[in-house]
Design a protein around this nucleic acid. Structure first.
Lengths: 123, 123
DNA sequence: TGGACATATTCCCATATGGGTATATGATGA
DNA sequence: TCATCATATACCCATATGGGAATATGTCCA
């Protein structure tokens, strides 16, 4: 098996920076492809391909209007990412799980209590 | 250019389900590789490779203890993902930006006011 | 009807993935 | 020093990526 398809899920779809940019732009509202082409300064076929991926994961929806295709954001699939990442929120908010830091603090505390300097030290 | 390297950033590293599992497990605390091998039911070399990727993006840190390597979580790089995704929170919390829905509501409202049924309809 | 415009699809290519299997490196204990 | 455990690395392979260029599809207007 190679890497999972970009269309496998929102995680993979969103791993591509260009696609994140597209979503950022669409957050401002519905837009035709050419708008995105101009704003991203990217070849039109590439934009279309990225949009296809985003569409397949349900991150964008299309609406036809004349010869234009208006793409609009649908953030729902991002919720799964949000939910997963949020699980780890503590791990960067507090230095909580930084075991090394915690241990260092404990040791420091212990030292100031015991007031002896024994122990092997390596960073 | 092919797809961005898995080690390009947290987004790419975390796109792989196995690596997410590893992080989930490490959220419970420091663990040696073999623990993960057992828990994930995955070949040891594969686990090592995934850990390498996670290490290169800074999502895990290692500590040597005898012949074991204890891996521990470092969630900080996940914050960037969280921050980006959070931008879109509204888009799934409220049906706010569902333009079609909004338009439908407006039309319904207009109809009940004007009380005439003109307009082309296509879903 | 033909041409310009808007978008999608197809083909080609270099690249690196994730899995598998085998082997290297390194520490421990007899 | 040698065998064993713990982990990492090297190699091989199928796969599909993202970009580029060319072309197909479809709509509108003269």
């Amino acid at each position: 098996m190679a890497r999972a398809a970009t269309t496998a899920d929102a995680f993979n779809a969103v791993a591509e920076p260009r696609r994140r940019q597209i979503l950022d732009l669409l957050a401002g509202g519905e837009r035709p492809v050419n708008d995105l082409v101009a704003l991203l300064d990217l070849a039109q076929p590439l934009v279309s391909k990225h949009l296809r991926v985003l569409r397949e994961v349900g991150l964008v929806e299309v609406r036809e209007e004349g010869r234009q295709r208006l793409y609009r954001l649908n953030g729902r699939p991002l919720k799964s990412i949000h939910d997963w990442v949020k699980t780890f929120e503590r791990s960067w908010t507090e230095r909580f799980n930084r075991l090394d830091v915690v241990l260092a603090e404990l040791r420091a505390e212990e030292l100031s209590t015991t007031e002896n300097g024994a122990g092997s030290d390596d960073e």
